[in-house]
């Protein structure tokens, strides 16, 4: 089982979730509906989606040992690859072609993040209150990045209370 999940991690991040889903179904571990339910639960936890999905799927299937196996499966392959890449960079990082390649690749990142932001923003129902809340939290976060943990957690609690009051 450990290897079953571990081999799936090639594909990366968000793209991984549907892959996990179909692999679990193929092995008869979950049905499609069960998986979507599990995925919805995974989304409401902090942590990378692939990680939380694997942990919850593992836990449901085989208890704590399953969760541990799922987590190990998700973490270990990228860990190995990153360490290998980082070690290689340490050795060849000054090579001019490689530097140019990394600079070009790195330049896409703000574009990718902006694209994700657009998709996230498109995917929700906007109201004046929500727009103001988002803007307010964003400003607070960039003004005091050091306090981002209490700001975010406190912010979510306040937003939760506001949401219950006005929208339900």
């Amino acid at each position: 089982m450990f290897f079953g999940i571990s081999s799936l991690t090639i594909g990366g991040g968000y793209a991984m979730v549907p892959v996990i889903g179909s692999a679990l179904e193929r092995r008869g571990w979950t049905t499609e509906e069960e998986f979507y339910e599990l995925f919805a639960v995974a989304q409401s936890f902090p942590g990378p989606l692939a990680l939380t999905t694997a942990a919850i799927a593992g836990k449901n299937l085989a208890g704590p040992r399953g969760a541990a196996a799922g987590v190990a499966g998700v973490i270990l392959p990228p860990f190995g690859i990153i360490v290998a890449v980082a070690a290689l960079l340490g050795r060849f990082g000054e090579e001019p072609h490689l530097r140019a390649f990394l600079a070009g690749a790195g330049a896409t990142v703000p574009g990718l993040v902006a694209a994700m932001l657009v998709k996230l923003a498109k995917g929700r129902k906007w109201t004046w209150v929500r727009a103001l809340e988002t803007l307010g939290l964003f400003l607070a976060l960039i003004l005091v990045p050091r306090a981002s943990l209490p700001l975010f957690l406190g912010g979510v609690v306040i937003l939760y209370l506001l949401e219950r009051r006005w929208n339900s």
Partner: peptide, 20 residues
């Protein structure tokens, strides 16, 4: 539902922070 909406707002604000 309220929790999900609150988290969505929080996530959007964090994403905007990332972009910034």
């Amino acid at each position: 539902i309220a929790l999900k909406t609150a988290l969505k707002t929080g996530t959007l604000a964090m994403m905007a922070m990332t972009l910034y």
